[in-house]
Amino acid sequence: MIDIHNLERNYKTGHTDNFVLRRIYLHIAAGEFVTIMGPSGAGKSSLLNVLAMLDDQWRGEFLFEGTPVQTLNRKQRAELARRRTGMVFQSYHLIDDLTVAENIDLPLSYKDIPRPERQALVADTLDRFNIVGKKDLYPSQLSGGQQQLVGIARAVIHKPSLLLADEPTGNLHSEQAAEIMQLFRTLNQQGTTIVQVTHSEANAAFGSRTLELRDGWLTRDTANPNLNSAPGAPGAAA
């Protein structure tokens, strides 16, 4: 599903370049549940943003389901991301003045889907996530776990092939976190490829593969034990 070759991302600070991703080589197959770990500032979220196609300032090659993303213009990338990816945020990022149902409907509202069809999809999703009773509530009326549930429902309503999650349980207590991770596992079992960023080993245990980043370098990949962990040395994950 994802093939990345020699991907680099840097930010300019004055006259110096600060690299946040260095020579990343990565292959993720469809149906995988990948966890990206690493200390703060290692480049986890930056990699996630590249995968989500929110960032287009990187160099290298990125094939998404066979499409060379680096050759797409900004609009084409946004279109591809809108169709094929879903995003779950640590801070849920629900919109205050929209109800639960309206928040879930949001990704569909940016596609050319007729209103009745959208309503049916929202109803299905509410049912699937067991939150029908909360459809008219506002985010501020929900608990953190419930808000994240809505966030995930919103991310998967358009049936993306790739679900990206940035610290999805970072603001939840352990019990709620376990429930959310169980939901991810279920979604993965139903065929959705998942890439999550987390600090939690417990969360990582729900996944099938773990990557570790340090100072922008990919230093560990459980699917590729032979990966050279020394910074500066390129490694290729199988």
């Binding site: 991301a81 945020f89 990022h93 919109i95 940016y110």
Partner: peptide, 16 residues
């Protein structure tokens, strides 16, 4: 700003 970012992340195009 963050809401706009979320909307873009969820597929909103710039003209929208």
């Amino acid at each position: 700003t963050r809401e706009l970012g979320v909307r873009m992340a969820l597929g909103a195009q710039r003209h929208q």
